[in-house]
Nucleic acid binder design. Structure first.
Lengths: 338, 338
DNA sequence: CTGAAAGCGCTTACAG
DNA sequence: CTGAAAGCGCTTACAG
């Protein structure tokens, strides 16, 4: 069933070395020979065997991405940026999904198998403990996306700064009772967003009591989901102390929160303002004010970083941090002129 | 750098055959030997070489999925279903993205390379011409998702039926001026949805003139995007003949359309009702009435079909068609009791 | 420009 | 239970 270079060599009356050279675009093959080989290969429907090739070449043309979950739209967008860049190369993308923290190690283990891939992209994982050891032990290029470790190239958004910007904007509108809709507390990006927000509020002399920081109770997508926003907001509305400004650590949480308010007859942004995080394409059509992460660019840069690292394994580790930008739409009120 | 079974064999004082047996869980190895080998392998940080393994075994443990684009949330959801099922297996997922029709052949070509994968899942592609030939020529298991060809296993939603259901519901509310927001006309699923809708309207004696079927002018995501819905709706609103019921061929288009109406001060569903397609998780939180496709289930079934096909290459081709279900929320009016 | 041969790292009958 | 050896399908110095 499988046509090999042996079949072609025989049919074309040349050696397998020559056939191989033709498929490797080696110039030391006469035009005539090349033509015959190509013709025979086409006729026989030859497909190179990638495993044999990478075994012999001692290298692969595939990249592994370890992603918590494709159905999280933030990753879908980042991967789009990545794929756009990859399509111009000859690399393939192997996707490992690790919905929970303890599944990551197993997936990384697989991604790190020899001969599997030429490099690894790890998304949103706290690099420490066993995971840190795995990565350090391997000699594959690694780039971290949406997370950080001093020993590996990384690309991320300044989450703390995002929280600060959100707080500053809210403060400029004259609001007085802030609240935060957090994802899972073990999520580092979410924690940083919240901390940036809180610190700025404190500086402004506004308290952000614990009861106003609602942590996601669902683990799905690490709490970055609509339901968590809906439930968190519902809790807030029932607390008796309704906030007048809510910072959600993701757009989808914000969407859930807005739905909760719509159902409760609470006006947005009249009674409660909302700021999300990410700026998914959909946010624009929902009029959601949010902190924009350059998702496509992050994916594209991640690929560039990885290939640079492949070419220069010994280069200094580099960390790229994008600044989030506030996109003001209709879920917030206007700033009060100073 | 790379530790091989030769290194382990030497360090453990056994042959490479024995080392191999240990890693293949071959029972014909004494417990003592097994323990030594495992201990040495662990100490040396041995990783099997996947290419060598699949070359020798004549099989891979990876599956290829050729998807138009990960940033289309429908695919993100289907792939989630797929991955949930796959994680219980030892298969890996190779993702090829082909944003436009003419890129598909190239990606399929790569996916079909020998030794690359044990099976292929092709999404939303019209299987004809060169593509059809490629697939037929290959002896790899293939399953079609969101598309159809008599010669291959497939899994899809009854799109025409979905259009009919939307039309029937609209009719039951007493509306009189329907319109359709179409994706790209070459999209088969979108066309079927539209045709089902139109045929039912015709049966009811309602005309659906060409000017009321707005075709996406943007090619991005095949027209399945918010912008296309926004622009289509804007065109409709400016036409002077404002419809009172709009069927969008996807949820994201519906969202764009609703935004256009919000900005124009048109009340939904008071003046214009809207029905989408897909039932993305977000639809629920936007109160969008839509036709639900069981996306996760489709992904899971696709994987099952593929593995069944691997085990029984000669089994009869099977087509699984899911019936879409209408989820009534707040963008439509109530049916008028007969 | 072309070929014979070794080698990539594993698996798996075949013997024992 | 264990080992020697052939083989998976390619690539790539080394000769010529």
């Amino acid at each position: 069933m499988g046509i090999t270079i042996y079949d072609i060599a025989e049919a074309a009356g040349v050696s397998i070395a020559t056939v191989s050279r033709v498929f490797n675009d080696n110039p030391r093959v006469s035009d005539a020979t090349r033509a015959t080989v190509l013709e025979v290969a086409e006729r026989l429907g030859y497909q190179p065997h990638v495993s044999a090739r990478s075994l012999a070449r001692r290298q692969t043309e595939t990249i592994s991405a370890i992603v918590p979950m494709l159905s999280n739209y933030f990753y879908a967008e980042v991967l789009k940026g990545l794929q756009d860049r990859m399509s111009a190369s000859s690399f393939d993308l192997l996707v490992f999904s690790a919905p929970t923290l303890d599944e990551i190690e197993g997936q990384v283990e697989k991604a790190l198998h020899r001969g599997r891939s030429a490099g690894v992209m790890l998304f949103s994982a706290p690099v420490r403990g066993e995971l840190e050891r795995q990565l350090q032990r391997s000699d594959l290029p690694v780039v971290l996306v949406d997370c950080y470790h001093p020993g590996f190239d990384s690309i991320s958004t300044d989450n703390r700064r995002g929280g600060e910007i959100a707080a500053d904007y809210f403060l400029s509108t004259g609001m007085t009772a802030p609240a935060v809709l957090m994802a899972n507390p073990h999520s580092i990006p979410a924690s940083h967003r919240m901390e940036g927000f809180r610190s700025r509020m404190q500086e402004a002399g506004l308290v952000l009591p614990k009861e106003r920081v609602i942590v996601s109770s669902t683990g799905y997508h690490d709490g970055f989901n609509e339901q968590s926003g809906f439930e968190g907001m519902t809790k807030l509305l029932r607390s008796g102390q309704i906030p007048d400004a809510v910072f959600a650590t993701s757009d989808v949480q914000a969407i859930g929160a807005i739905d909760a308010m719509r159902q409760a007859g609470v006006d947005v942004p009249g009674q409660v303002q909302v700021i999300g995080f990410d700026d998914l394409p959909i946010a624009r059509y929902l009029g959601l004010t949010t902190l924009r992460q350059p998702m496509h660019e992050m994916g594209a840069r991640a690929f560039d970083l990885l290939t640079e690292r492949m070419n220069k394994p010994a280069a200094a580790v580099a960390h790229t941090v994008f600044a989030p930008t506030l996109v003001v739409r209709q879920t917030t009120r206007e700033a009060i002129p100073a």
